[in-house]
């Protein structure tokens, strides 16, 4: 781990040149802007389709409601963009043998994986917070401010980010299993879109399943009883997945 700074610096250059985090930022920001715009235009769209615009009145157009709706969209579209964009980050190192030469000079799998994980974790937290604040601001402009405070937006964004950190660890783990970027991305999406929601139906798992963080992030209420076990179990799962990834990569066969 002594050469962690060298790896982290390499990751910074990689991101500046491959635009991975920038692509994710653009996607998240576009969706954050589109959400209130679509809601604003919805009465006209409904009227043009011959539907009763009164239906619109039943929708929640508060800042909280639209941010909740944004979270709901990002749990699918956001994860799709996130996993597809980042699936190559570790897979290419292994698949294309980029990591071999540095390894012969004293580089190690732990520093490689942790530097990537830390950079993308930091990046996705920033991206999610920016998009949440843009969504909050733009909803306030197009509709009216309904008192969603900066603190609530920040808390909600951080809780939602933790779920993405879990998805990132899951993605890295699947890369270490499959060595293939697309295979790992598809498996991660299957876990997130199908397996997680299915498991969440079991009452006993709800308190510990990372998927619960998505629900918590849209509540805008801090319920320590439900939130703390979720944070603890997700953090533990992230550690286990990263440990598994490092172990797998360390003992990976080189051809």
């Amino acid at each position: 781990m002594k050469n962690f700074p060298a790896y982290f610096q390499k990751e910074l250059i990689e991101n500046l040149r491959t635009y991975r985090l920038f692509i994710i930022l653009i996607a998240f920001v576009i969706f954050a802007l589109m959400e209130p715009v679509i809601y604003r235009m919805l009465p006209r769209i409904l009227a043009s389709e011959g539907l009763d615009p009164e239906v619109f009145g039943m929708m929640d157009t508060s800042q909280q409601g639209l941010l909740r709706s944004y979270i709901g969209n990002m749990i699918q579209t956001g994860i799709l963009v996130f996993t597809l964009t980042l699936s190559g980050a570790l897979a290419h190192e292994i698949q294309k043998n980029y990591w071999i030469l540095p390894r012969t000079k004293g580089g190690n799998a732990s520093a490689l994986i942790l530097s990537k994980y830390m950079l993308y974790s930091f990046g996705i937290i920033i991206v999610i917070l920016i998009s949440f604040f843009i969504n909050r601001f733009y909803t306030g402009v197009l509709f009216e401010s309904t008192g969603l405070t900066v603190l609530w937006t920040l808390q909600s964004g951080l809780i939602f980010s933790l779920y993405f950190l879990f998805i990132l660890a899951l993605l890295f783990f699947f890369v270490s299993l499959t060595r293939r970027s697309i295979a790992a991305a598809v498996t991660t999406m299957l876990m997130s879109f199908i397996v997680m929601p299915l498991l969440f139906n079991f009452q006993a798992l709800q308190r510990f399943l990372p998927y619960g963080l998505v629900q918590e992030s849209g509540l805008f209420v801090i319920n320590r009883y439900s939130l703390l076990p979720l944070i603890a179990s997700t953090t533990l799962l992230i550690f286990i997945l990263l440990w598994g990834t490092i172990k797998r990569v360390k003992h990976m066969k080189i051809y």
């Binding site: 050469n3 990689e14 540095p102």
Partner: peptide, 28 residues
């Protein structure tokens, strides 16, 4: 030791200078 594999692979987005600097840093 030093090792040159048959088909050495490098990060295509880095320059030769940057790559050698990266190796130097890894070698501490």
């Amino acid at each position: 030791i030093g090792y040159l594999p048959e088909d050495p692979q490098f990060y295509p987005y880095m320059t030769g200078q940057e790559y050698l600097t990266y190796i130097g840093k890894i070698s501490r």
